[in-house]
């Protein structure tokens, strides 16, 4: 199948996927009185069709936060920008650090640094975030110096640095290991031995012979990287209490009026748009990098 045809097929499929999975809490739930499981096909179908009939009169873009009703469009702007800022920073910084540190790791011994990267890589993302927060609290208690805000408790002092560090560390770590592996495989190829025999410099071989052959693998793995970044976004926003798209979904999914299908679907669709933008940004970055090192 040509790529355009695949795209026209997969984008609606993913949107349908979002609509179907967001209806799960309505479909499958416990009975509030007896506590036994219930499957409510009718209610689920009603919620599903209710969204489309509500698009026209704007009902699908209103939601309750506590007792007050708000418009989705008024809220999404700043929340989206906040998430966008973290995703693009994580994408670009993560890829850049990943590629250059990965190359360094592939050609040098770097024993203890490899150990650290491996150790962080073995821990789940949320454990890394929790350890960062815990470390700051520990330092603050011992020395009285609060390096960074640990979480956003009020809107005047948002936590910025620590979430940013957490957002970058995890994709960068994945990228470093990936690039280092691909790089060391590429360096075993015969054309590298040939280039060496021709007397080319070490740096020249790495950047102009090996790197162009590693870049396609990085491109092929981009969706995995974006998956890590987006999954990480949920964890980071939630643990730092930062106002982004995922917090919009999680804090408003259940209100006093029960499960709010509309806000979950709208939030997830915004999430999908963010995914697309983030992917495009990393692709553009890799394209620019390719322009420098490909001849």
């Amino acid at each position: 199948m040509p790529k355009a045809a695949q795209l026209t097929f997969i984008v609606p499929a993913i949107i349908l996927f979002i609509f179907l999975f967001a209806v799960m809490p309505v479909l499958l739930h416990t009975d509030p009185v007896s506590g036994s499981f219930q499957l409510s096909w009718k209610a689920a179908a009603g919620t599903f069709t209710g969204y489309f009939s509500g698009i026209e009169n704007g009902e699908s873009f209103r939601f309750y936060a506590g007792e007050n009703e708000y418009s989705f469009w008024e809220w999404i702007g700043p929340f989206f920008l906040n998430s966008f800022y973290y995703v693009s920073a994580a994408g670009i910084a993560g890829t850049a650090i990943g590629i250059f540190a990965g190359i360094y790791f592939a050609v040098s011994k770097a024993g203890w640094m490899k150990g650290i990267v491996d150790f962080i890589g073995s821990l789940p993302d949320f454990v890394v975030v929790l350890l960062l927060q815990f470390g700051i609290v520990l330092i603050a208690r011992e020395t009285g110096v609060v390096l960074f805000e640990v979480a956003t408790l009020n809107s005047d002092e948002p936590a910025v640095m620590l979430p940013l560090i957490a957002m970058i560390i995890i994709p960068a770590n994945y990228m470093i290991r990936n690039v280092a592996m691909q790089m060391s495989l590429t360096l075993k190829e015969d054309y590298i031995g040939n280039a060496k025999a021709r007397g080319l410099g070490r740096m020249y071989i790495i950047f102009f012979h090996a790197l162009p052959n590693v870049l396609p693998y990085i491109k092929g793995d981009l969706h995995k990287l974006m998956g890590i970044i987006m999954g990480n976004l949920f964890i980071v926003e939630y643990l730092f209490n930062n106002n982004g798209i995922s917090m919009l979904i999680f804090t408003n999914a259940f209100s006093g009026h029960g499960y709010q299908y509309d806000i979950v679907v709208n939030g997830l669709l915004a999430f999908l748009v963010l995914y697309g933008i983030g992917y495009a940004i990393i692709r553009a970055f890799l394209f620019a990098l390719g322009k420098v090192f490909l001849r």
Binding site: K3, I10, P216, H223
Partner: peptide
């Protein structure tokens, strides 16, 4: 080696 469009599915957080 080339990226399949289906790898987009990797982008959905499982949790």
């Amino acid at each position: 080696g080339g990226s399949s469009i289906w790898s987009v599915l990797n982008g959905i957080p499982i949790f």
